[in-house]
């Protein structure tokens, strides 16, 4: 394994970077500077990216994460809520029994066993080695079966022609899309836009990192406090976890 050192270095870096970022949330772009995984190396399964959402820190009225998501990925609203794409949405909950309210962002849960990937006829829905569930729009035929299959309603269909797409977020009419965990940023060693935005707001409701690295902030937090997966009974082992639901 000639590139083991590189990989470990990378993992180490990202873990540290995230931790640092969490610690120094007010300083933007800190995690952006340093070296990313060498661009000519394929991702592998030695890391699995995950996201922890601490609902106690997520404010009802705050939409920093979803706004950042939309602007990072060029998701423009056409004023048609039913067909506008939302990769990340703020969901408001009210406990029917106690009346407790809480707010949290929901998007693709990046399942380990994603139903969308199972059902996709062409293999356009796939799970990258590092656990990110993506749509290969080059071979997506727009059948929307994945949207039928997703237990989280995490996917959107592009219902209209797109213009002025972001260079890092290609999206086009007739294909299905969802949260990519900002994979181009990730590959460049940067945090997903939502996480960064949350940090910038000073809420620290989102922790991003490698679930498989016991030293990562997210892994430590998962070990320390009780967290949940949405629709846990489906046993999908999601990459996105929630604290306080």
């Amino acid at each position: 394994m000639s590139n083991e050192s590189t990989d470990q270095g990378r993992r180490g870096f990202l873990g540290t970077a995230t931790a640092t970022a969490v610690g120094l949330a007010a300083i933007p772009g800190l995690s952006l500077v340093a070296l990313a995984r060498s661009p000519d190396l394929a991702v592998d399964n030695r890391s699995r990216w995950g996201l922890l959402i601490d609902t106690s820190k997520c404010l009802t009225e705050c939409t920093a994460c979803t706004t950042a998501c939309a602007s990072e990925n060029g998701l423009v609203s056409h004023g048609r809520p039913a067909t506008d794409a939302q990769w990340l949405r703020k969901v408001q909950l009210k406990d029917k029994a106690t009346g407790r309210t809480l707010s949290l962002p929901v998007g693709c849960q990046h399942c380990e066993k994603p139903p969308c990937v199972d059902v996709c006829p062409t293999g356009a829905s796939f799970r990258r080695a590092d656990g990110i569930v993506l749509v290969d729009k080059h071979i997506c035929i727009g059948c929307r079966y994945c949207m039928m299959a997703c237990p989280y309603k995490a996917r959107s269909f592009v219902h209209e022609e797109t213009h002025n797409q972001k260079a890092n977020a290609p999206r086009g009419k007739g294909t299905v899309e969802a949260c990519t965990l900002c994979v181009p940023r990730l590959d460049a060693g940067r945090l997903p836009a939502c996480v960064e935005a949350c940090q910038q707001e000073g809420h620290q409701a989102m922790i991003f990192g490698d679930l498989q690295d016991p030293n990562s902030a997210i892994a430590k937090r998962l070990a320390a406090v009780p967290t949940h997966q949405l629709r846990e009974a489906l046993n999908l082992n999601t990459g996105v976890r929630y604290q306080g639901v």
Binding site: C140, V158, G174
Partner: peptide
């Protein structure tokens, strides 16, 4: 389909785990 022009993709790319396939 969202991309009926990609019918050929549907006929050449198979995900055998999919019941749709």
């Amino acid at each position: 389909l969202g991309r009926p022009d990609r019918l050929i993709v549907a006929l050449t790319h198979y995900n055998l785990k999919s019941i749709f396939t």
